[in-house]
């Protein structure tokens, strides 16, 4: 079986590229959302996708959470899915954050809107760092105000072997808002990613 795990060099390189992408995203988001955005340096870890539901069970136990998924395709066989998790307490702040002043926007729509903004802004930055470009599928609401979102996450995580887990915390001056983002990358795409990282490393 092919080894999907990263070398220390590859991991450091990816961490650095993600940090840069985060910085780009944080700058763009701050200008778009008209508020100072502080993006904490994310914790990055490669984990077995099957372990993720259990990790989140501990972290989100008993909380009503909403889960939004967004898939992406890049060149060179790179593809994956991002999952954003929101705690319900934050959902009400999103309308103000997005500048929606009409009542016609549903909570599900606000969640998909903010998710596509957060995800694509970060992924575009990452694609740029990897000398790639991504195309995106429309975001889907996997679970909304759901206590049992873990079992839905289990069904989703089942399709993926290895997951790159990125925990992002967004801190906004005028709003207290945070969410978790998980980036899931399937096995063969992880191999492509390793090749891409090796190329980046070779250029240094």
């Amino acid at each position: 079986m092919t080894d999907l795990s990263f070398t220390e060099e590859q991991r450091d390189c990816l961490q650095e590229l993600i940090n840069v992408a985060m910085g780009l995203a944080s700058d763009k988001l701050a200008r778009f959302l008209n508020t100072f955005v502080h993006l904490q340096v994310p914790a990055i870890g490669l984990v077995n996708a099957a372990e993720i539901p259990e990790q989140f069970r501990g972290q989100y136990q008993g909380l009503h959470s909403s889960m939004i998924s967004l898939g992406f395709f890049g060149d060179g066989g790179l593809r994956g899915e991002t999952i954003l998790l929101y705690q319900l307490e934050n959902a009400g702040k999103i309308a103000a954050l997005l500048g929606y002043d009409d009542d016609a926007t549903s909570e599900a729509e606000m969640l998909t809107d903010i998710s596509s903004i957060l995800t694509t802004t970060f992924l575009n930055g990452l694609a740029e760092q990897l000398d790639n470009s991504f195309s995106y599928a429309a975001p889907r609401v996997i679970s909304s105000r759901d206590n049992d979102f873990i079992s839905k996450l289990e069904q989703t995580a089942f399709h993926w072997q290895l997951a790159l887990k990125v925990d992002i915390r967004y801190e906004l001056t005028d709003y207290s808002f945070d969410c978790n983002m998980i980036l899931l990358i399937p096995g063969e795409a992880v191999l492509k990613l390793k090749t891409i990282l090796d190329n980046v490393l070779a250029d240094f």
Binding site: L29, D102, A104, T105, I117, T120, T121, N124
Partner: peptide, 27 residues
């Protein structure tokens, strides 16, 4: 067309240079 919402979304596409989506399931 839903002007306030849609113009906000279109402006997000322009200023973030990222795609945005609308699904019949939500709207």
């Amino acid at each position: 067309a839903p002007q306030a919402w849609l113009s906000r979304k279109l402006n997000s596409v322009l200023s973030l240079q990222s795609p945005a989506f609308s699904s019949w399931e939500q709207r």
